[in-house]
Design a protein around this nucleic acid. Structure first.
Lengths: 236, 236
DNA sequence: GAGTCTGTCGTACGCTGTGCGAGTGACATC
DNA sequence: GATGTCACTCGCACAGCGTACGACAGACTC
């Protein structure tokens, strides 16, 4: 039995005549719950309770939980700023985009687990990529290269950010100052270092460094590296 | 209540004296189940059944389902080839790595959903990144830049591949030849195009193109772009 | 007053991860 | 041979999950 391709964006939202519940409210409440307690904490029952209504009432406004997640995920993309490139120059605009997307994902860490799960084709995601295309278009990219350039940048930001989020989540609760809590991390790292002298050398350089700053430097390196690579393609 | 950082890699595997069940067997069976039926199909009961044993027997060899997923995920990284850079030159080695990782992820599409979930610190992941470091080291990168360079490449591959996998999964069952099945995709795309003329122009260029080939071209563009950016950094 | 449409919700089904404790067989020690 | 200890398996049970279904209430139309 073949399945049709289907997604929330394929259907219209229910007309919002309802007084007590609406798709917007549901999405907003889901976002709050996700931000506060993470992906596992979002259940239809808990969400219903937070909205002061029955769990199954939600299903009038949303087909199923997957679609709800699609809606919430798209909301994340709405929070990414992207300045007009004719004001700032395309490199600055692209940088602001990259840092903005990174920040938006950090603000909603549960999104890291959803990215690999469904394509981002909601209106906000579309709007964002259209603006990114415009940026690169004004920069001088044309034809396929225009598309390629913007998805290269997008890919880098996603691929750099999601593992960062995974790290942060794994460390949640463990604090740097408390040696006992970090012992687990250290033992994993030590084991790796023991087998691979190259890794040991690398880790040594990070000693005593704030991991957030280290990650930011890392991100910035890759970003300017990509922008350089793109720029080289502009002169043909 | 604070939580300790903990992971499978922190503990030793149970000594493999067991005749009927072993960690390796469990991981292998889990991988088969995941490949055949996807992430949702993996339940401890189904896995137990496939192994011809009770569901809860698994818990003697693996602390919980999360750890099992960590183990299976690490197995994916073991399948990535990386040629010695002194034979092929660092750019070729890096390309082979990138395509190899991409292929490994494609072979196990469920991995896309796990990448944002937990840091990849298993022995195979470590081994792979150590080899990548060696590659860039021989290329001439030093200090922090060595680390940055390899994680930039890693980030790009992950970020480019996971959305591709998400797309493929969403299209599963829908075939290009069958217009009816693709109608859903088309309506989403059309809606986006209506709101954003830039997007419409882009989509038009892909018309009639094999999407797999289009994606490969896209991937290749970004990859050479990054390698160029990295190379520019080599001459200081 | 009757009928229809919109929206809510209680109940129920089949499924999940996993804690617990009972059970089994191999081996060591007396 | 009896007893004890360990490595391992597994049935049961619990709390929770997503969601199909049908009953129900209120508003609006004829």
């Amino acid at each position: 039995m073949k399945q049709h391709f289907s997604s929330v964006w394929t259907r219209e939202s229910r007309p919002a005549k309802s007084t007590t519940l609406s798709r917007d409210q549901i999405v907003r409440a889901a976002m709050e719950l996700l931000d506060a307690e993470g992906l596992d904490a979002l259940s239809m029952r808990r969400l219903g309770a937070r909205l002061g209504s029955g769990a199954t009432s939600i299903y009038w406004h949303v087909a199923n939980k997957d679609e709800l997640l699609e809606l919430v995920m798209d909301e994340v993309f709405s929070k990414v700023a992207l300045p007009a490139p004719d004001v700032t120059g395309w490199r600055d605009a692209a940088s602001v985009f990259a840092y903005g997307l990174r920040a938006a994902l950090f603000d909603h860490p549960w999104s890291a687990a959803l990215i690999g799960t469904r394509p981002s084709i909601g209106p906000n995601a579309m709007e964002l990529s259209a603006r990114l295309l415009r940026t690169f278009s004004l920069a001088g990219f044309e034809g396929m290269a225009l598309d390629y350039a913007s998805s290269t940048l997008m890919a880098y930001v996603l691929g750099a950010t999601t593992p960062e989020i995974a790290w942060r989540a794994a460390m949640a609760g463990a604090e740097l100052n408390d040696e006992g809590l970090m012992a687990g991390v250290k033992s994993v790292v030590d084991r790796a270092a023991a087998d691979h002298p190259e890794l040991a050398e690398r880790y040594a350089e990070y000693d005593g460094m704030d991991p957030d700053i280290a990650r930011k430097l890392n991100f910035d390196f890759g970003l300017t590296c990509i922008l350089d690579g793109l720029q080289a393609r502009l002169g043909r």
